[in-house]
């Protein structure tokens, strides 16, 4: 929206395009502000139990939610669940549609931060996991 200062608001309507998305695999979850948090959590838990891996994506305002969701899953997993977090920047495009005959259509780009959290379980070594879980409990008990 940096470029907008010179644009008369009466002459144009701002229209945001949809943000670009990764292809939707079955275990990709895109978190939004509008969805019910409990429902999202349940969905992620189900996917995690099915395939041992969920990837949670959050954009902009939904970053907090995505983190919250991932941490909830981790908490519920009692040490079995691990997180792998990556952040990125997504380029978004806004279209400015003219309201008069004279105006040219314009578009402006802006960037927004996104987060991609891989929530997964490692199934190889149960003993190691148990010890890890104990360690986690210890650490949580200490703190």
């Amino acid at each position: 929206m940096q470029a907008d200062t010179s644009i008369d608001e009466e002459e144009y309507t701002l229209r945001k395009r949809l943000p670009p998305r990764f292809p939707l695999r079955f275990n990709d979850v895109y978190v939004s502000e509008k969805t019910n948090f409990k429902a999202q959590e349940a969905k992620c838990q189900k996917l995690l139990d099915q395939g041992n891996e969920v990837i949670i994506h959050g954009l902009g305002k939904a970053v907090n939610r995505a983190i919250n969701l991932a941490l909830q899953l981790k908490n519920k997993g009692v040490g079995t669940v691990k997180l792998c977090v990556q952040t990125s920047t997504v380029d978004l495009t806004d279209d400015l549609i003219p309201e008069t005959d004279g105006g040219e259509a314009k578009s402006s780009t802006r960037s927004n931060s996104a987060i991609h959290i891989r929530v997964y379980r490692e199934m190889e070594d149960t003993d190691q996991k148990r010890s890890e879980a104990q360690a986690a409990q210890m650490s949580s008990g200490k703190s």
Binding site: P98, E99, T100, D101, G102, E104
Partner: peptide, 12 residues
């Protein structure tokens, strides 16, 4: 009518 919005003459 130009008043109801862009017409055929719209630059866009």
């Amino acid at each position: 009518s130009q008043e109801s919005g862009p017409t055929f003459a719209s630059k866009m």
